[in-house]
């Protein structure tokens, strides 16, 4: 346990638990609602938000938060109103916002920017303020999910009947997209915009291989998410590999083990429900 002597490792461990846990919980709804691609779209778009912050000299996590929420709401509106298929819309957002991020960062020729850090994360380089910010976002996201647990479940299984019962289905759908955005931004510094969508989808998909009970799926996903994050972090400490990659690859190994022993061999992502 020698690694615990280092402040940066203590921070990294706290962050791994927060990020792994929240990603895994929101991931259950992402997987069951068939929103995996939308999750990837929101996370990649965050890169442009980071670029804006760096250019303006504002904390990039804050501009990323505003930008990601805006993109989440836009994706929601486009998939609701437009005749464009929503995967097409996400495909366009995805690349355009990445390009915007690259462009903005490219404008800052006089400064060194750790682009790789934002793309792939560096959980070992967090400041105390970073961890506090993650803690606040995790508390908000986790609190909302806990409070609206049954509403999100009804939305995911049968949005139409939920609407007939008088649940605010539209608002819940948008709220879910905003929570995905919050989760992504919370994870930006530790696993990066490219890898975070894997950390959202993979533990939930692994859990779905092993249980057919919603509560158990939630708890298993939470366990897989936290365990993969901590294990990946330790792996990167002992073997000296990039932490984001270590975390995501550990989660992927967990998924394949779950898939191999699954009684049902369910597909990693169900068809869209609506």
């Amino acid at each position: 346990m020698d690694f615990l002597q280092h402040t940066f490792m203590q921070r990294a461990l706290i962050e791994a638990v927060l990020v792994g846990g929240i990603c895994a919980v929101i991931g259950v709804y992402v997987v069951l609602n068939g929103l995996s691609f939308i999750g990837a779209g929101i996370s990649h778009s965050t890169f442009a938000g980071v670029g804006i912050g760096l250019l303006l000299g504002v904390e990039p996590v804050l501009t990323a938060l505003l930008f990601a929420v805006l993109v989440a709401l836009s994706i929601g509106a486009v998939s609701e109103k437009s005749r464009l298929r929503h995967d097409t819309a996400v495909g366009i957002f995805f690349a355009a916002t990445m390009a915007l991020g690259v462009l903005l960062i490219g404008l800052m020729k006089d400064r060194y920017v750790d682009v790789l850090g934002y793309l792939f994360g560096n959980i070992l380089a967090l400041t105390a303020a970073d961890v506090w910010m993650s803690l606040v976002m995790a508390a908000i996201t986790g609190g909302i999910i806990l409070a609206l647990y049954k509403e999100f479940l009804a939305l995911s299984f049968d949005a139409e009947v939920a609407s007939v019962m008088g649940l605010p289905v539209r608002k819940l759908h948008y709220l879910l997209l905003v929570l995905i955005a919050l989760t992504v931004v919370l994870s930006v510094k530790s696993v990066g915009v490219v890898l975070v969508s894997a950390l959202i989808v993979t533990p939930a998909a692994a859990a779905w291989q092993l249980t057919v009970n919603f509560r158990r799926m939630m708890l298993l996903s939470l366990f897989f998410g936290i365990a993969s994050s901590v294990a990946g972090l330790l792996l990167s400490w002992y073997v000296d590999i990039p932490s984001g990659a270590g975390i995501v690859l550990t989660a992927t190994v967990v998924f394949f083990v779950a898939w191999a022993v699954s009684p049902r061999r369910r597909s990693p992502s169900p068809p869209a429900l609506r």
């Binding site: 049954k150 479940l153 009804a154 299984f157 049968d158 939920a162 169900p270």
Partner: peptide, 20 residues
């Protein structure tokens, strides 16, 4: 229009009728 591979038990689905 419903996905019956969803991880739910019968009683959970029926109770959902009361959510409103």
């Amino acid at each position: 229009q419903l996905d019956f591979s969803f991880p739910l038990q019968v009683i959970d689905v029926v109770a959902m009728g009361l959510y409103g």
